[in-house]
Design a binder for these strands. Structure first.
Lengths: 194, 194
DNA sequence: GTCCTCCTTGGCATCAAGTGCCAAGTTAGC
DNA sequence: GCTAACTTGGCACTTGATGCCAAGGAGGAC
């Protein structure tokens, strides 16, 4: 029996905690909500909470920071002759299938609003960057720059532009994913022609 | 008397705390060093420490996060017809005069090594970004992109490339500032031609 | 069903980073 | 020297996070 009761219970509890917590965060803000409030609302002990999440921030981020390999697979699936920027743009989209859209927007909005969440968000990008850079470097072909520099630079830029685009996207309507991709392309165009 | 005793004492104490703290951070790491150890080494009370710094991270960052306007002034001083990337590159250099070179390298190395410091470092860049973006947008001239998007994208990219370059710089020798600028240009070239 | 083992749970104590408050001491201006 | 302005340090307290341990439920062997 690969799906044991324990595993199912664990996922269910985790879901409930996230639901309760996100609602509290939206009502009173992330910093203003204490872990004790969250565990009270979710009906779980404080100690168990920290076994489920490790950190208050983990409620928001989940295991997104560890999804670099998922993006990498999506990137490798793109044709080799596609421009890196387009390939990266599509690879990032692979994540949108992992999260419920509505919750995804809530989370994104929280991340961009709260300073400490924003910092964690950027750290997450950094981890993705380290995973994606080698494949991008490969696609760039030979060059005489120090090893790894170009790949890192391209991925870092793509993530920076995605971030700028996301910020602008949330400020206008912030729901249509195609619009987000459009803004990403505008940002990149500005960088590559400015 | 504009230079009161209080002000001088304050700066001197601050200096001493930073000295003591950086040495401890280098010896045992940032996370591993407790504020109590720092105040013991610096001969100051815990309570006063938090009046001087506010946060343990502030020992490392100082008021660097608030120096956006300094970079902005340096940027405005560059000729209008200079490519934005070069202008930004020179503007960033304005900061190197604010910090003692040796200590600057120590701080940079700490920032890039420790995860939580790294996050704060990125947050700092974000604050600079918000200050610099309008002037960059102005330099880019008219365009039909959403207001502010292009300026933000260009600054974010410049900072991302600076970060990548800094990482590589620290990995090789990490002392010659001209070499850092060279790496920054290589990173940018990769982005703008990839 | 019984028994034994493994894993989870929650309570408790503890630590580290910050913050508010207050009494005591120091500096500045007169 | 006197008073007002400011700084200092001690104390208690909040919040996030961790180690330890005893109690209880899940799962397999019989």
């Amino acid at each position: 029996m690969s799906e044991r009761l324990w595993d199912r219970t664990r996922r269910r509890v985790q879901e409930e905690v996230v639901d309760a917590a996100l609602q509290l965060f939206l009502e009173q803000g992330f910093e203003e909500t204490t872990v004790d409030q969250v565990v009270a609302a979710a009906g779980i002990s404080r100690r168990s909470f920290f076994r489920y999440f490790g950190t208050k921030e983990d409620i928001v981020f989940g295991d997104l920071a560890e999804q670099g390999p998922v993006i990498l697979e999506a990137l490798k699936a793109r044709p080799d002759d596609e421009p890196v920027w387009d390939a990266l743009g599509h690879a990032f989209s692979a994540l949108s299938t992992l999260v419920d859209p509505e919750r995804g927007i809530t989370i994104t909005r929280l991340c961009m609003t709260n300073p400490s969440l924003r910092a964690g968000h950027l750290e997450k990008h950094l981890r993705w960057q380290r995973v994606l850079a080698p494949e991008v470097e490969r696609r760039l072909g030979a060059g005489d720059a120090p090893a790894g520099l170009r790949g890192e630079a391209v991925v870092a830029t793509a993530l920076a532009c995605l971030d700028v685009a996301t910020t602008a996207w949330l400020e206008q309507d912030g729901s249509d994913l195609d619009e987000l991709r459009r803004l990403y392309e505008i940002a990149l165009a500005a960088v590559r022609s400015g």
